[in-house]
Amino acid sequence: MSKAQAALSGMGQSNVTATPLQMAMVSAALANGGKLVAPHVVSRVTDGDGKVLRDGAKPTTTQVVSADTAGQLRTAMADVVARGAGSAARIDGAELGGKPATARGGAGGAETQLVHLVRPARRRGKQMAVAVVVADQGASGSADGGPGARIAKRIMQAAIG
């Protein structure tokens, strides 16, 4: 990798690849003070009355960036939603942060435009991270985060109220 490619990779360009789950995990780690929680499917099993029948395995946690760095990135991501390219995802009363981006790729080398919007969100003690991928958006972007931001907003409104 050349120095130019390494520099572009540092801001998510060039040959950087990530799945939506990986991007949601990045966002969640930033919301957790730089601690990455391994993805898990089952936290606990309950009966119809809510009584816990079995607890799931406790997921592992790893400090992947310092709490200070995570805080700086959360602040930058919050600014993107408050005043920048993710403004279509704003939700009154919720702490949000976003990172809209575009990527090219696809099966057989086809050029498919994707829009990613990743964010940590908090409201009334609830928090979540969302990654949205919208395929075939064409080359034109949107100043407010476009359809990815609007989809993420609807998902988060449903989840955090």
Rank of each mutant, 00 (worst) to 15 (best):
M25D: 13
V26K: 06
V26G: 11
S27L: 01
S27I: 13
S27W: 00
A28Y: 08
A29W: 04
L30E: 08
A31K: 00
N32H: 14
N32T: 06
G33H: 03
G34S: 03
G34Q: 04
K35C: 04
K35F: 05
L36D: 06
L36M: 14
V37K: 12
V37L: 13
A38E: 15
A38Q: 12
H40S: 12
V41S: 07
V41P: 04
V42W: 07
S43Y: 08
S43C: 03
S43L: 13
R44E: 15
T46V: 15
D47I: 15
D47M: 12
D47N: 15
G48W: 01
G48E: 15
D49L: 12
G50P: 12
G50V: 12
G50S: 09
K51R: 12
K51M: 11
V52I: 14
V52C: 11
L53F: 05
R54K: 15
R54M: 06
D55L: 13
D55T: 08
D55A: 08
D55Y: 11
G56A: 11
G56E: 10
G56M: 07
A57R: 11
A57W: 03
K58T: 06
K58D: 04
K58S: 03
P59C: 07
P59E: 03
P59Y: 08
T60V: 04
T61S: 13
T61E: 15
T62L: 09
T62E: 05
T62W: 05
Q63D: 13
Q63I: 07
V64I: 14
V65Y: 01
V65G: 00
S66N: 07
S66C: 09
S66T: 15
A67F: 08
A67H: 06
A67W: 02
D68T: 14
T69I: 05
A70S: 08
G71W: 07
Q72W: 06
Q72T: 10
R74M: 14
R74F: 02
T75C: 00
T75K: 15
T75L: 14
A76V: 13
M77L: 10
M77E: 09
A78W: 05
A78G: 14
A78D: 04
D79K: 02
V80H: 01
V80P: 02
V81C: 10
V81S: 05
A82C: 04
A82P: 00
R83M: 02
R83T: 11
G84T: 02
A85V: 09
G86L: 05
G86K: 03
A88P: 07
A88V: 00
A88D: 09
A89W: 01
A89V: 00
R90D: 07
R90Y: 00
I91H: 09
I91A: 09
I91F: 02
D92H: 02
D92A: 12
A94P: 08
A94G: 13
E95Y: 05
E95S: 14
E95A: 15
E95K: 10
G97H: 06
G98C: 07
K99Y: 01
P100I: 01
A101M: 07
A101D: 01
A101R: 00
R104T: 13
G106D: 07
G106F: 01
G109Q: 06
G109M: 06
A110R: 14
E111P: 04
T112E: 07
T112I: 15
T112R: 15
Q113P: 00
Q113F: 14
Q113C: 03
Q113I: 10
Q113T: 09
L114Q: 07
V115H: 04
V115A: 11
H116W: 15
